[in-house]
Amino acid sequence: MKEFLPLIMEALQQDFILRGIVVGSLIAISSSFLGIFLVLKKHSMIGDGLAHVSFATVAIALLLNKSPLIISIPLVILSSFLILKLDEKADIHGDAAIGLISSLAIAVGVLISSISKGFNVDLFSYLFGSILVISKMDLILSIILSIIVILIICIFYNSLFAITYDEEFANVLGINSKFINYLISTLTSITVVLGIRIVGTMLISSMIIFPTVTALQVSNSFNSTILISSIVSIISVIMGTFISYIFNLPTGATIVIINGMFFLLFFLIRKLKNNN
C-alpha cells in the first residue's frame, strides 16, 4: 500500500483525475437514485438500450462536429419516449421495444462511423469511456445536470416510491403514473449520456444496475437502499479511477469490476446472515 501512496498523491495533482472523480461521483449518485426505481420496476435494461442509442447520437454529433453531450441528450430522451410509446400503443413489450430501438441505433452508429473517416478514435473513447476526454465544459454541464436529476428525484421521491411499489394503488391515489414514467425515462437518458464519458456506452448501464442490486442484498428500507448504493457507487468510482491510474488500466472497466466485487461481497454477507 505504501508504494501506491505517492502514485495516489501524484494522481490527485492531475486535473483530469479530479474532473473524472467529480463527474463520476455525481453520475454515481444520479445512477443510484434512478437505479432503485428502474431495477424494482424491472426496467433495468432501459439503461442498456439508451446507452446503445447514445452510441449513435455521439456518432451523429461527431459527424456534425458538435458537442456530443448537447446533441445526445435530446435525441436519447426522444428515443426513450419512443420506447415507452411502443410499449403503450403498439403492443410491443418493453424489453422487445428496447431491443428494437437499441439495435437500430447501433446500426445507425456503425453506418455513420463507416462512412465518415476520421473520428473513429473519438467514437472508441465513447464506447468504453475515457476520463481523459472530459473537458471543463463537460464538467460544468455534468455538475448542473446531475444536480437537476438528483433534485427532481428528491421532489418526486414519494410519488416515485408509491408507483414503484404498487402502480395501481398509486393511480387510485391520483398520482399520474404516465407522467412519472416519462420523467424517469428523461432522467435516465440524461444520466446515461453524462455517464458514457466515464464508463462508455457499453458499460454505463452497470452503474445504474450494480450499486442498486448490491444494496438490495443488505438493505431493509427504500431510503437505506439508495444510501448504500450511492456510497458503494462513489467508492467504486474513486477506487476505480486511482487503480486505473496506478496500473494504467481503462477507467470505466475498472469501475465496473470494482462494482462487481462489491456485489459479490454483499451477496456473501446476505448469504451468511441468512445461514445464521
Partner: peptide, 24 residues
C-alpha cells in the same frame, strides 16, 4: 425482495391528500 418498511408502505396511503410537493 422489495426494500421497504411497513411504515414507508403505509405512509403512501396519505399521498392522495397532498397537493403540490408530496412530502410527509
Amino acid at each position: 425482495l422489495f426494500p421497504a418498511t411497513v411504515e414507508e408502505i403505509v405512509a403512501t396511503g396519505l399521498l392522495s391528500q397532498k397537493k403540490g410537493m408530496k412530502f410527509y
